[in-house]
Design a protein around this nucleic acid. Structure first.
Length: 503
DNA sequence: GCCT
DNA sequence: CAGTACG
DNA sequence: AGGCCGCTACTG
């Protein structure tokens, strides 16, 4: 037990170190033999404590205030990373390596209440990010640089600019390597359907690189130095250049299992696992399913099977706009006093002539005080025969501060169409707009970039984050941005319009 | 399958 | 919990 | 060895 004999007080719930993270850390300490001294007790027996875990971004004054003491205890003040790293490595790290220096603490950082556009320079921008406990981790410093935590302005700036090149965020040119990527995309899709996630990932990232490559590849040697294109994929590319296709793909086309899985997984709500199950049960075609509906399909899957031939059709841009306008009009009717802001996102916002579905994002003031609004809107849309089916309707989110509708809509004379409506508070709106505008690959790329900077990017915003075993166990405060332009500025990238976010 |  | 979905 | 986006949100 690595923490045997340790008496530890965990101070959380301020300076970017959340209560939740504090609890997780406390639990891990207890599990590994340590004793957690609750704050009230700790106050009275500071001399008994081995050490106190405090937020990285805390200063003397805050700690005194939280502990309700007039002078700091004599025991060491240690970063949460000490506990995290010790737990993870199952060896006791030296607390001295993680000490919060009492004298050098006051790097004051007041979180501004009023919003200002993020400044131009990435360093200036990062200064506005609340710090999270992490910087003292030697492991982190070795394996990656974390600009937020970096004290050196110049290095920070250079680091950000250098690493950016390695990530594909936007595609300025059209895809010059369609002849290759179209074949590899089939291979990728097949691997995901066969649940060979590893190869799926590999082909996905290689395809993104190839799509963004500024010259047309006509000879295998040209891919020699491309990121994510290794030996095997290079060989595949050569085969494609010589024969126009891949033996592997042809062989896969022959597999009746894969063929059926491919067909079934086009049904909304049916993925590779369910499709595979259907094949095992003897189903081979959609007609087989329609004739004898499998018991284990849920309501949503049944609805979407029934409407399959309509839902699968692409939606003309014009119709996306008509249905969106209708939805927004009704929303405004229901909340006449609110200044409702709306965007139709997805491929529509990226300028496509046809779209797979309709993706509407809404915001207004006090979204969280109108928890029933989405339900009312959906009821109204059903009454007005705009919405025909509800697949998903998040009623009231406790932890999460947004609302989701996924369902099916239809013009009086039109086909059934997939419709999504999301409502986010203004605070998250720009981040949500970016998320729902996509593309999916754009989101993946920029999120990975953020992640490698010690940040977490989601549909609800950008946060400083500590991860352990892939899980974020300690997050900082939201970085507020109210326009997409500001988000790009924060990442020190020139603004990219939605049309350039296809990857 | 590729990268750290 | 696994499975599926959204961009 | 382990990650490859999100401690996504939802269903059954």
């Amino acid at each position: 037990m690595i923490f045997d004999g340790y008496k530890i007080c965990v101070l959380s719930g301020f300076a970017g170190f959340t209560k939740m993270s504090g609890e997780i850390i406390s639990k891990n300490i207890s599990k590994n033999g340590g004793t957690i001294i609750p704050l009230p007790q700790a106050r009275n027996q500071t001399s008994n404590l081995t050490l106190i875990i405090v937020p990285e971004q805390s200063d003397e004054k805050m700690i005194l205030k939280v502990m309700n003491l007039t002078s700091l205890p004599s025991c060491p003040l240690v970063s949460p990373n000490w506990a995290i790293n010790s737990t993870n490595s199952k060896t006791l790290h030296d607390p001295n390596d993680y000490q919060i220096k009492k004298t050098e603490l006051p790097i004051k950082r007041q979180s501004p209440q009023t919003y200002q556009s993020p400044p131009q320079s990435p360093f200036e921008a990062y200064k506005t990010l609340p710090l999270v406990p992490l910087s003292n981790s030697p492991e982190m410093n070795r394996t990656q640089t974390n600009p937020i935590l970096n004290q050196n302005n110049t290095r920070l700036h250079d680091d950000l600019l250098q690493n950016k090149d390695k990530y594909m965020f936007t595609k300025e040119q059209p895809n010059l390597n369609e002849h290759i990527t179209s074949v590899l995309e089939i291979l990728m899709e097949n691997y995901f359907l066969l649940r060979d996630r590893g190869r799926g990932f590999a082909y996905r990232s290689a395809i993104i690189v190839l799509k963004s490559h500024p010259e047309k590849i006509i000879c295998g040697d040209q891919v020699g130095n491309l990121q994510k294109v290794g030996k095997k994929i290079k060989k595949k590319i050569q085969e494609i250049l010589e024969t126009g296709t891949l033996k592997r793909v042809k062989a896969m086309d022959e597999q009746s299992r894969l063929k059926a899985i491919k067909e079934f997984s086009k049904i909304w709500g049916v993925g590779s696992a369910t499709a595979d199950k259907l094949f095992t049960l003897g189903y081979r075609t959609l007609d087989d399913l329609r004739k004898n509906i499998p018991q284990f399909l849920n309501d949503n899957q049944r609805i979407c099977l029934e409407l399959f031939d309509e839902i699968k059709e692409r939606i003309p841009r014009e119709e996306v706009k008509e249905i969106s306008d209708q939805v927004v009009e009704y929303a405004k009717l229901l909340l006449p006093n609110k200044d409702i802001e709306a965007n139709t996102c997805g491929s529509y916002r990226r300028g496509k002539e046809t779209c797979g579905d309709i993706d509407i994002l809404l915001t207004f003031d006090d979204v969280l005080e109108n928890k029933l609004f989405l339900r009312e809107l959906v009821d109204y849309l059903i009454e007005k025969k705009v919405v025909t089916h509800v697949l998903i309707l998040s009623e009231n989110c406790k932890k999460h501060e947004s609302f989701t509708f996924e369902g099916i809509a239809k013009k009086p004379d039109g086909l059934h169409r997939r419709l999504d409506i999301k409502i986010y508070p203004r605070k998250y709106y720009a981040w949500a707009l970016m998320h729902f505008t996509g593309s999916a690959n754009f989101n993946r790329s920029i999120r990975l970039f953020a992640k490698n900077k010690g940040l977490k990017l989601t549909d609800e915003g950008l946060f400083p984050a500590i991860r352990s075993h892939g899980e974020t166990i300690c997050g900082g405060n939201l970085v507020e941005c109210y326009t997409e332009e500001d988000i790009f500025r924060l990442f020190d990238m020139p603004y990219k319009p939605p049309e350039q976010r296809d990857l």
